[in-house]
Design a protein around this nucleic acid. Structure first.
Lengths: 232, 232, 232, 232
DNA sequence: AATGAATGAGCATTCATTCAT
DNA sequence: CATGAATGAATGCTCATTCAT
């Protein structure tokens, strides 16, 4: 099942020209895969759009699946790198959350929804390797925000009674559905506005409740206590 | 809406036996499609698992696509019906939100997430009909909650400065990611707990900020006033 | 290969109701076959248009091929019968030729070219039985004209230096192409006019040459003889 | 004219080897199609007989239909070219008619009548493209004779009171039936003889009636006059 | 290094035909 | 007598992948 150790001779040592080729192919493949999805994209299509032969594609990548995985990995690496570098430059937890949300929406929206579809749809696949890799990439991609939220939880700036993964799911899940809506219904919302609104609500949800309902509860407790004393 | 008018050999469902067959096939197909996705599922596989010939499958469904659409529709119809009936029986907006969240998680979790995958993956598809149908089904499925939230917005119980679709996206998006997590990492969370936490945060996010704070302030004011009078 | 002696029980003894059924089916089948050709006609289509089930069709006819053969035979029988009865009622060889030509064109043209196509196209088929039957039917169909021409040849009214089959081929071949033209190009000529012109030319071709060129040749011979004598 | 713009895997013929392959396949296909007719010929059969895989066939031809069309076109092109070149080399209208008739009979007879069957049978077909192409090819094929006849009509050498298409139909229709006879009954006539007889009759039918009779009368007159003078 | 050429393995779909009821 | 139901056997067509040159 695993695609290791085939007796096929594939290029391993990459010269400068080779490297350029690889990038060329990856570029085209990203486009083709994101436009058609994994199953409906064809290696021929990729080769033709890259101006090379199918055989050449297969001399740089062991299989269609391999190529697709590299495409996805490349995309994640790029965007992850950006987040890793830029998130720390933003000050304040809320601002960082906003930054991540905004960046995510902008990036996936401008990509024409292609990569979004690809990652979301093909992220599963019966193939375990595939799914595993994606999970790992996703972990790296969401790490910057996770770090921020974790720290905020430790400092008490964010609710501590909620599991961190749940917070993450709320952030990325919400955005994903927004994007999905855009993809399917083709009605592009104003990114800045949506990012603002989303951040607003998310932050409201994340902030410790003692600042609102919990405080109320506490106060209610105090009053109850006062009443008890009073009755006595 | 778009089925061709060819002299199709498709049987109209008439007798009781037919109906059973259709359900049988739909059942198997749901399984196969949700396990492998549309593209990787084969009609032969479905036929074999149903213990019938491929031809028989095609005598009840005009095409693979048709079959898949009916599978998805059937699944949505089931769950939509439940929601439509039960949501109104729950009292209070927050409780209704909690009910929907809990139901959704339970249903998809116990379904092995297969249908979830299928719907999410095939929701796009190059085919317009397909995507259109799914969009419609989704609309019906989310309608009960949407009604609740809309009413709550009108009554001021829920923030009015946020677009309704965004609220919906937060609810369903968050849940989807939770399920995704489960699917990929196979770590099944406690559904009741997760549903509670999610509802908690969502509700916090939805409730008008001023309202909760105002309420708090008002309450504090009232109590303070009462205390003053009492002490006097 | 031959379709004899299958253990299948087919209806043999036909009651009055059965006979009606057979005719009904044959009527519909003629339509369907002539509209779509043998290969593209389906037994389902025939059954549906006859308002019965496929199974019923197969209880009256052993196979699709059988049905088609009977259709063709029925058509030929009808038109042959007419010719056999009416041709002798026309007086004069030329008039009889004209009658046959006109009848043939009218019949095939009004039939919407369907049967024409069917007979002409499916007349061959890899099946020897099929082709054999058609040949026989054709023989009967062309017999009336053949008789007329044969008699005319014997009486010297028609050239005797041409094989009778060749005369027949000219008559039916010419007409067939005229019909073909109509079928493909959809430009319907005036039947009466075309029949007249065709008869005119055919008759001119059939009439003994001594009445024209042969007479001339004879005359030339005479003159040559005279010249010879003169030179002597 | 009507080939789809899908990302077809069809090879463009480039090298010498490709060209050979194409011809190889076309050769086999001509055989298979003409033996079994379009519907009963299978791509697998063609591939096997060509000693290659089905996939290879489909890499040179977009579809079965495409392949068949090319076969027919190829055949027509060959024979059309010959006629276009050789007919003008023959002198005299009658001789040209004879040449075309003879050539046609020889060609189709030696071809085993397979192509004849194919063209006749598939000339219609529900497919408009197909029928259209064949009509065009037929037009080209019959053009040389048509030109000859048209000129002859203009010069008065051939009857002007008959539509040109009718003349054509008589020529090709007659021949077709002769071939049909051969095909079905397997009695091969002597081609030269048949060609002569057919030409004789056709020419008799085409030549203006008055002309031949007038010529005869004129000739008789002239000779009589000469004789009178001579005798005096 | 690059590719033209070839293909094995599938897959959805069709349809004449059978048979239990 | 009629048929609903079921199917075996084909068939056209696709595509990732290999390999000699």
């Amino acid at each position: 099942m695993s695609t290791l150790a085939r007796p096929v001779r594939k290029r391993e040592v990459l010269g400068a020209r080779s490297e350029r080729r690889v990038k060329e192919i990856l570029g085209v493949a990203r486009q083709v895969f994101s436009e058609n999805g994994y199953e409906n994209a064809t290696t021929l299509d990729i080769a033709r759009q890259a101006g090379i032969s199918e055989a050449t594609v297969f001399s740089y990548f062991t299989s269609k699946r391999d190529l697709c995985m590299q495409v996805i990995k490349g995309w994640y690496d790029e965007i992850s790198l950006v987040l890793e570098q830029e998130v720390p430059m933003v000050e304040g937890t809320r601002a960082q959350l906003h930054f991540v949300v905004h960046k995510h929406l902008v990036t996936l929206m401008q990509d024409g929804t292609g990569m979004c579809k690809l990652v979301l749809s093909e992220g599963r696949s019966a193939d375990a390797d595939f799914a595993g890799l994606i999970a790992e990439l996703k972990r790296r991609y969401t790490a910057p925000l996770m770090k921020v939220l974790a720290a905020a939880q430790r400092s008490g700036e964010v609710r501590q009674d909620m599991p961190l993964p749940l917070l993450r799911d709320m952030v990325y899940g919400s955005m994903e559905h927004v994007l999905w809506d855009y993809m399917v219904n083709r009605n592009k919302p104003d990114i800045a506005t949506t990012a603002g609104q989303l951040t607003d609500m998310l932050w409201t949800a994340f902030v410790p409740v003692e600042q609102s309902q919990q405080k109320l509860a506490q106060f209610r407790e105090d009053v109850a206590e006062a009443l008890r004393r009073l009755e006595n």
